[in-house]
């Protein structure tokens, strides 16, 4: 337990674009960790995925609309996380946040990793679910193989 100067491992003010499963989960966890969170989604219904203890803010609207971003006070944001289910919206939001509002940390989810080349040099971090899942699956494969090897060697001993 840290007594002095509790080091935060989360940004002070995070804007999450898209309140899907990932967006809502992130928003709930950040809110639990006492981070300031704002969630943008164009569909009001999406916010019901937020837990009852969620202490952040919500904005209904299109995140590529500058008025909505101003309303979300994007200038004050330390991080913007674009996790809508539309890659193109994520790319555009990320570019706006990074280029126009100079947000320090911009993270986006892309279903299609091939589109990453659009902004590759610009310092935006990309999360690609299919690549992550594939890596995880390979991880499991390799673990299983080593386990099997272990059991094989045990059997040999016997």
């Amino acid at each position: 337990m840290k007594l002095f100067g509790m080091e935060k491992d989360i940004p002070d003010y995070t804007i999450i674009v898209g309140c899907g499963r990932l967006g809502a989960y992130l928003a709930n966890s950040l809110s639990d960790k006492k981070g300031k969170v704002l969630v943008i989604d164009r569909n009001k219904e999406a916010f019901r995925k937020l837990s009852s203890s969620f202490g952040g803010m919500t904005v209904i609207g299109d995140a590529i609309d500058f008025d909505i971003l101003h309303q979300a006070q994007i200038i004050k944001a330390d991080a913007v996380v674009a996790v809508t289910n539309n890659d193109n919206i994520n790319i555009m939001v990320a570019q706006i946040a990074h280029e126009l509002f100079k947000v320090r940390m911009v993270i986006i989810r892309l279903y299609d990793p091939e589109r990453e080349c659009v902004y590759s040099e610009s310092g935006i971090k990309t999360i690609c679910p299919s690549l992550l899942s594939a890596n995880e699956i390979f991880e499991i494969f390799s673990k299983k193989e080593t386990q099997e090897e272990e059991t094989d060697s045990v059997e040999e001993k016997e």
Binding site: I64, N86, N88, I91, M92, Q95, R115, V118
Partner: peptide, 11 residues
């Protein structure tokens, strides 16, 4: 859609 046109041109 603006976002689509944006990505098309950038690609």
């Amino acid at each position: 859609k603006d976002e689509d046109n944006f990505v098309i041109c950038e690609l």
